[in-house]
Amino acid sequence: MPATGRSPGTGRLITGVAWAVLLLGLWLWGHEIAGGLGGSSAPTTGDVAAVGRPRGVPLPPAHDPVEPARPRRVDIPSLGVAAAVVPRGLDARGAIDPPPYAAPRTVGWYGAGTQPGAAGASLLVGHVDTDTDPAVFYGLSAARPGEKVRVTRADGSIAEFTIDDVQVFGRDRFDARKVYGPREGGRAELRLITCGGTFDRATRTYTANVVVSAYLTAVRAPGAGREA
């Protein structure tokens, strides 16, 4: 959620600092940590609060990974998200450049990483707000297991992911491996990430990150209404 009591013009600075902290963790993970998790993690105390998987919510089986293709668009019907996806690289500090501030409704994809639908964890990042308005991932914390995320890819196919986990990770103990690493080997997974928690006036950052995890459950072939 946007911080309250901010003076006009401070939002961009706060968001930029927050992204630097978050995405530096990605750089450290990529350079220093090898291998996947080998299983799901859902800590619920301390620096992490987890929505987890509510009882009684059936989840479909995973679809086999498909050939890589760059993402072009992401849709989350339950949240009203319909956004273009643009590739983002690393800046001079080794952190991912977030989506441009001039396009707060755009989602960034870590272009050097996994492409959505391929085996591994693909990373999509978006702003939660600007200095004045909600941004593309403003409602991300309201996502729930069982809901769908659809990624339109450059080959015309649509990779459909099912959300299986929603967590809020405190920045003071942000665990890049838990956030960015694959939950199950051999699956095609997706991470949707934005700022969360509360606004810390002392550091001028948000105190946490919202991380939505999903896995591939269907693929619609290019130009067809059927699943591949």
Score class of each variant (00 low, 15 high):
C195K: 01
R153D: 05
R173T: 08
G38I: 02
D164F: 04
R12F: 13
L124N: 00
E147V: 11
D131V: 07
G5T: 00
Y215L: 01
R153P: 11
S41F: 07
A69Q: 02
L216F: 09
D164H: 12
R72C: 12
P60I: 04
V151M: 05
S122G: 14
I96L: 14
L59S: 09
D155C: 07
A143K: 10
A112T: 10
T4C: 13
M1K: 08
P100D: 15
L124W: 07
A142D: 14
P134T: 02
G146Q: 11
E32V: 13
S7I: 11
L90A: 04
A118M: 06
D165F: 09
D97L: 12
V48G: 02
S141V: 14
C195Q: 00
G108A: 11
P222F: 06
D47K: 02
V166A: 07
P2D: 07
L216Y: 09
P77D: 03
V166W: 01
A42Q: 01
Y206I: 08
V210F: 01
V48W: 01
G197L: 03
G30Q: 15
T203Y: 07
D91T: 06
T205V: 05
A102T: 11
L192G: 08
R153W: 05
T152K: 05
A135I: 00
R6V: 12
R150N: 06
F174T: 06
A154R: 03
D75Y: 10
D200F: 03
A202W: 08
R226M: 04
M1H: 11
V151W: 05
S157L: 10
